[in-house]
Design a binder for these strands. Structure first.
Length: 819
RNA sequence: GCCGAAGUGGCGGAACUGGCAGACGCGCACGACUCAAAAUCGUGUACCUUGUGUAUGUGGGUUCGAUUCCCACCUUCGGCACCA
């Protein structure tokens, strides 16, 4: 038999060929085009750790496929990429290998950029930004100064985890073990108070709770709402014996008459005052110890309560009762005022504390429908909703109005007022590290904190720094860098030696892409007006509370300063889950379960790796890696190759029904795949295409190749597959003699008439159990369907001669007979 | 501990608005091709006590009908403010 061999699918050659061609033709460069609707697709930029791992591919590939889909839908799409290049790992590498963080970072970036290019993604590389470049961090510093000049940045003393041996601040990941010791030297960490910069994100707490006009996942909105943690309550002024004020925040002012003691955080100013007034070893020891616990430990509800009596008393302003003030670490300085009124009868934590230290318990709420609890004998805090008792003027007030009545009463008496508190804390931006954007402030003994003048930005990191193995910040140790003249008075002054939290760099990188390293402003306003806001933002769910709140805050603050427009930076957010190792554990070098994408690309080609990553798990869920499963995607990609390029033995001789069925399936698949693309359900995009390929294969066997239905199927199939597998589809497209490039074609539209089924299968149930299936024409009426079904032998048998009580008909789907 | 999410065959997953549980793929089995193997193609594949049978983490509830809604519990994963 004479045979014309189809060339073997060679992923490497094809991918190199098209990647070069696309770059040469500037196929993915995105420029302002007023004639097209714009689409700004943004995906979270990687940290240049050295190697792209499979998680990056998992995040980026579907984002790229969706951006390609939007382009085929007719949008002018921008899909940029960059590197979030400041951060701790570079500094660790510097200390460990005695290499400059910049050289470590930039060589990692060069490698990772090549890896990113191997994915065949539609990045516009002209728009790349690297946050560690002076041309970028110049504007990070400029933004800091804008926030400062507009009263949104301030300095405050606050504690950091500190290693006294290494003489350095430790990040949470550098503190190990239950005894909280330094990862480098094992010394137990201590807290150290440093004067640090904060951004006033709490000013925007209320607005950040509002998600109107943005399409963000419910779970992210919930996480952010809980993170911000709005509580309505009252501020109440207790008096100390010396007449000083001690303010507490309470969500339950209606229980004020049940207060039997107060608790203040170990960091509370009153504690410092007590310690400064004389030796108190017990309190000092307690405070030291509390400083060594993490906040997560301290806020654990099931932790054994500890505390120490302060020796002081306060006066409850509602009844002039003298109550003891205790110090305990279950009260956090960062929430409310760092002082609480304790109502042990109605709060479980207060109750445990009272029982442990033998403090009084007074019941002030009579829970509805229960016996009045006895403070002396109760074994847990009572429900706090019911009628108020034992509460002077408030006795007898029903629970549902007590809150409001007490607040009014407090305001009338001038001892308190209704207020709202948030769990959200201001954003601490100072880092005692080298590899970050220097805080552009000069500290002058006469003028205070003075902004570095705009024309002197950026404040460059000095290159000639020394790396101590202890991790001490080289900016502090540099002999000359910090010494400057005050820009206002000319006196000898010092630069701020701290750098900024890297979340500051990533709060505005979406603006950086608009016009990278623009010289006169952080971005070109023309580009801003065209591209912003971001239309789709994709990235990991782990960023739900921090980065994604910071960037919203940053945008709103900039809006109020006249820099940005609109209320939100990112209209639509979609998050992916995590790819675990084959052992179902988080991938990490130490576990040895890391999957290397380069090896997979070398073996299977980027198209197969892309297809598998989109197919093997629900994108927003993630899943463990399965190294065998990728074979299925490899087979699919190869089958597509032979399906459309290899001539069939039987050509153009299929019967009409085969062709009609083929066409129906093609148009049904357009509907399904389009719906799933819109919904970010990439696994069913690929499975839908696989299913269609199976049907195309049957049609090919039946002789459909060469028909106009076949040509339409091939054309539509390749266009739908192009976002998933951009290289192979471009190659087949070319070999079929179609016009370059497949990626500039339009997305196919389903023909509703062609997609219409001829028959529908009714599911027949008796009492909810499947008893039969009946194929009926689509045009059948409910009554006709019912008659057909009741005549079926299986139904007659199941009814056992009884009359149906009820027949439920779901049109075109199901008939359930209730007997 | 707190906040959030998820539990479906041997495995990853599918099931659109409460309506056929297991699409698609992996794996496995058998067959075709081959001297043979690989690759490819084809067929089959939830379970059992084979029947008006059981089954979507466990136990309850709502409903004609529940993987889907409600309640309680268990397990796993993400975040918890200096990893990014």
């Amino acid at each position: 038999m004479e045979e014309k061999k189809t060339p073997v699918y060679n992923s490497k050659a094809i991918e190199e060929k098209w990647q070069k061609r696309w770059a040469d033709d500037k196929l993915y460069e995105s420029n302002i085009d007023e004639n097209k609707p714009k689409h700004y697709a943004l995906t979270m930029l990687p940290y240049p750790s050295g190697n792209l791992h499979i998680g990056h591919w998992y995040s980026i590939t579907p984002s790229d496929a969706h951006a390609r889909y939007m382009r085929m839908k007719g949008y002018n799409v921008m899909f940029p990429m960059g590197f979030d290049a400041f951060g701790l790992p570079a500094e660790n590498a510097a200390i460990k290998h005695n290499i400059h963080p910049a050289s470590w970072t930039f060589s990692n970036i060069d490698h990772m950029r090549d890896q990113l290019k191997s994915m065949g993604s539609m990045f516009d590389w002209r728009r790349e930004i690297i946050s560690a470049k002076p041309e970028y961090y110049r504007w990070t510093q400029w933004f800091f100064l804008q926030l400062y000049k507009n009263g949104l940045a301030y300095q405050k003393f606050s504690p950091v985890d500190w290693c006294p041996t290494c003489n350095t601040t430790l990040a949470r990941e550098q503190v190990w073990g239950d005894d909280r010791h330094c990862e480098r030297c094992g010394t137990p960490v201590i807290k150290k108070d440093l004067n640090q910069w904060y951004f006033r994100i709490t000013k925007y707490a209320e607005e950040l709770l509002n998600f109107d006009g943005i399409d963000w996942p419910e779970r992210v909105r919930t996480l952010q709402t809980n993170w911000i943690g709005r509580s309505e309550g009252a501020a109440v002024h207790f008096k100390l014996e010396n007449g000083e004020d001690l303010e507490v925040f309470t969500t339950r002012p209606d229980t004020l008459w049940g207060v039997t003691f107060m608790v203040i955080a170990p960091e509370h100013p009153l504690v410092k005052e007590i310690l400064s007034e004389g030796d108190n070893p017990e309190i000092a020891a307690y405070v030291d110890n509390a400083a060594r616990s993490s906040e997560i430990e301290r806020s654990s509800a099931d932790r054994e309560k500890t505390g120490v009596f302060s020796g002081r008393y306060a006066i409850n302003p509602v009844n002039d009762k003298k109550i003891p003030i205790w110090i305990s670490d279950y009260v956090l300085m960062g929430y409310g005022t760092g002082a609480i009124m304790a109502v042990p009868a109605h709060d479980q934590r207060d109750f445990e504390f009272a029982r442990k230290f033998g403090l009084e318990v007074i019941v002030v709420v009579h829970p509805d429908g229960e016996e009045l609890p006895d403070g002396a004998t109760m074994t847990q805090a009572a429900a706090a909703h019911g009628t108020i008792v034992n509460s002077g003027p408030m006795t007898g007030v029903p629970g549902d109005v007590a809150f409001g009545k007490v607040c009014d009463w407090l305001e009338e008496k001038g001892i308190g007022h209704k207020t709202t508190t948030y769990r959200l804390r201001d954003w601490l931006v100072s880092r005692q590290r080298y590899w970050g954007a220097p805080i552009p402030i000069i500290h002058c003994p006469h003028c205070g904190a003075v902004p570095v003048p705009d024309d002197q930005l950026p404040v460059l990191l000095p290159d000639d720094v020394e790396w101590k193995p202890t991790g001490e910040s080289p900016l502090k140790l540099h002999p000359t860098w910090k010494n400057v003249k005050c820009p206002i008075c000319g006196a000898n002054a010092e630069r701020d030696t701290d750098t900024m939290d890297t979340f500051m760099c990533s709060s505005w990188y979406h603006l950086g892409y608009l016009s990278p390293y623009f010289e006169t402003y952080p971005f070109d306003k023309k580009e801003y007006d065209y591209w912003m806001p971001v239309d789709v933002y994709t990235g990991g769910i782990e960023h739900a509370t921090m980065h994604l709140i910071y960037t919203r805050f940053f945008h709103k603050a900039c809006r109020d300063m006249g820099i940005t427009k609109g209320d939100e930076p990112m209209l639509k957010l979609r998050n992916q889950g995590m790819v675990l190792g084959e052992d179902q554990q988080k991938m990490s070098k130490s576990r040895g379960n890391v999957v290397d994408p380069d090896a997979l690309v070398a073996r299977y080609g980027a198209d197969t790796v892309r297809a598998y990553l989109m197919f093997f798990a629900r994108w927003e869920m993630g899943a463990p890696w399965d190294s065998k499963g990728i074979e299925g995607s490899a087979r699919w990609v190869r089958r597509v190759w032979t399906m459309f390029l290899e001539k069939s033995e039987k050509m153009n001789c299929a019967d009409a029904e085969t062709l009609r069925t083929l066409r129906r399936k093609v148009h049904q698949t357009i509907k399904a795949v389009t719906r799933d693309m819109e919904a970010f359900q990439f696994n069913t995009v690929v499975s839908g295409l696989m299913e269609l390929l199976n049907d195309i294969g049957k049609a090919k066997t039946a002789g459909a190749m060469g028909s106009k239905e076949w040509d339409e199927a091939a054309d539509i199939y390749l266009r739908m597959m192009a976002p998933v597998a951009p290289h192979i589809t471009e190659e087949i497209w070319e070999q079929l003699g179609k016009p370059y490039s497949i990626h500039t074609q339009l997305w196919p539209e389903a023909d509703a008439a062609a997609a219409q089924d001829d028959v529908v299968t009714y599911v027949v149930q008796v009492n909810g159990k499947l008893r039969d299936r009946v194929d009926l024409p689509v045009s059948v009426s409910d009554e006709e369907a019912k008659a057909e079904v009741l005549a079926r032998p299986a139904v007659i048998a199941a009814l056992e001669g009884k009359d149906p009580k009820k027949v439920i008909i779901v049109p075109k789907k199901l008939i359930n007979i209730v007997k």
